[in-house]
Design a protein around this nucleic acid. Structure first.
Lengths: 346, 346
DNA sequence: TGGATTCGAGAAAGCGCTTTCCGAGACTGC
DNA sequence: GCAGTCTCGGAAAGCGCTTTCTCGAATCCA
């Protein structure tokens, strides 16, 4: 059987012996139509397995029921959790979600926005850290601005204020500071930090919060106490190995990974090196992705309401922005002390 | 500034002082256009920040560069990993992915297919277990059949043969059998299985493979050795608690969870009950989702090439099916023995 | 230099749908 | 019984784009 043309509204109308207008009205419930005609149209549509052409509908001025979500990597639990929240709200609003993964390529991110703009998506959600990069920011703004002018909604999770868009902001700085305080409270004095790329605003904020809080307690983080790695499990793993290789002697008593995902890699690296957590080294992360409570030892971290982050962002987009001032929803984190941290033995 | 109409090709053409046709040709590189005109059009398009209306393009017979992917839950690491593979291939082919989460609601799944059909998606990918349900199957077929007749591609990961579509099949049965053999080889004789809902074909296959292999070694799995739970971490957790509550006395020496995700919940439950893994009970899972190697103890499981599963499925869809016979790609799993299993002490 | 070819730009016909705008019946009220 | 209302179905005008089709102009060869 050849790929034959789609069934169109016209086919339905003809089969039901009514005009296009009537068929359209019946199928959309737009206006009242005599019962028998309505019946005939419905029957014909079912009979032919008619599916309206969404493109034509959109073109004809109908609704755009799809939203675009852009994140770095779908398989990162952090994004996955947020995406879960986004999808719930989207589903509740009858919206279809287009999820794009940029694999951390700034250009690809811009390209996706462009495509979404072409799709006339009802909204675009940017999930995850922005790149602290002038050129990128300009390119992004160049896409976003016309999109919004055309009526598109934009919202972001965890972005810096460079582009002026509605944002749901987890309190990275505050959370990291609280965590630092708690760790100092346990008696730790020598820290190391596993940081992601310094281009990401999330990294910057968490690092700053942590460092500042430490400073308040008279603890200085030296430059080589901060190891930079990729924002992934492997990044955490390798960074930790590097840390360990660098200075077997004066190990820190506590290791803070700016991300749970990195912390997971770190813990495995430590274990492989025969170091026990929290016996030899305490480890703390950030985000509280679902799996970390199931680790042994369970990971101390800063709990972020991940799903809610996604839900609120989607809310912002759905509600639309009244004023021109970008709105910001702040969601605070909460330190969760689990078994991966303890009083230092040294 | 009011939400003013979008910039259209006509605006660009007018601004560049050429006809629509010419503008279209320049922007698509469809035909050769005199250099100066080409220049003018490009400039005008850039100036106006023109973004073609993808709906209009699609309507006018252009290409449909979006594919739909339907899975149960984005935040499940299993799906996330597969989705990662799907996205990679999609990106390589210049396709945009619409990822839908059904939250395990059969009706929602059918509804999504319907929507994707309306979008004239180039392909629809079904990821995850099918529901073993007559009515559902009919409804699904009623959507899929006209979709394919209209030229749509359909492919699935891990589905049963009910609907006749191209499929990438992990060898659930074989993998489970191999695992069973390996566990018996370690000396285990008393097993318990944490199964998901029996409606899912994946559960059925893995259970069958495991049970049969056990039987070959003269070990019978009694009905109450199989505990059913939700196909999630919590499902595994609760099922394990139930198992433990039921019979403190005669504990199995080995626990097989049909899914890594469930195994994770199980291990936490065991730990909470003061049981050590693998000291008191060995635990094995299935899938080898990325995180399980980072657990302590690292989880014994059957490794499935998750990303490849997604890639191959997308491949099938991209390549299109020549014959009418549904193709099946079989991918086998591989038992990975890690620290969560050991010789039984009892 | 003239006629045959190319080449490239513009006009116009859809793609499948929604939505005014109209007009034809079916009513109402006096 | 007839003007005045009210319903409701149909014709037709787009929505923004791609793609023939057409035709004028530029190029070529003899």
């Amino acid at each position: 059987m050849k790929a034959r043309p789609h069934v169109t509204l016209e086919d339905v109308a003809r089969s039901a012996n009514v005009s296009l207008a009537t068929a359209s009205r019946v199928l959309n419930g737009t206006a009242s139509v005599r019962a028998d005609l309505r019946e005939r149209v419905s029957a014909a549509a079912a009979e032919l397995a008619y599916a309206p052409n969404a493109h034509a509908q959109a073109l004809a001025g109908g609704t755009h029921r799809t939203v675009g979500v852009i994140c770095h990597d779908v398989s990162d639990p952090y994004f996955a959790a947020i995406a879960g929240g986004v999808m719930r709200v989207a589903t509740d609003n009858g919206l279809l979600v287009m999820l794009a993964g940029t694999f951390r390529d700034p250009d690809r991110e811009v390209a996706y926005v462009s495509t979404l703009r072409a799709q006339r998506a009802a909204a675009i959600l940017l999930i995850g850290s922005a790149f602290e990069d002038r050129a990128w920011e300009r390119a992004m703004a160049a896409e976003l601005e016309p999109y919004r002018r055309g009526g598109g909604q934009v919202a972001a999770v965890s972005r810096h204020r460079g582009l002026k868009i509605d944002t749901v902001q987890p309190d990275n700085k505050g959370g990291a500071a609280e965590l630092a305080k708690a760790l100092v409270g346990l008696g730790h004095k020598r820290f190391a930090v596993l940081a992601g790329p310094r281009k990401l605003s999330t990294v910057i904020d968490r690092l700053a919060g942590f460092t500042d809080a430490l400073a308040e307690h008279g603890i200085t983080l030296r430059e080589d106490d901060v190891i930079e790695g990729a924002f992934t499990r492997d990044g955490g793993y390798e960074a930790t190995k590097r840390l360990l290789a660098g200075r077997k002697r004066k190990l820190p008593t506590c290791l803070f990974a700016v991300t749970d995902v990195m912390a997971i890699g770190a813990m495995t690296a430590l274990r492989e090196e025969g170091l026990s957590v929290p016996g030899d080294v305490s480890v703390a992360g950030f985000d509280d992705i679902p799996v970390v409570r199931d680790l042994a030892p369970a990971l101390t971290t800063v709990r972020l309401p991940l799903e809610e982050l996604g839900e609120r962002a989607m809310d912002l987009a759905v509600k639309g922005s009244a004023g021109s001032r970008p709105r910001t929803v702040r969601l605070s984190g909460e330190v969760v002390l689990r078994d991966s941290t303890a009083r230092p033995r040294r």
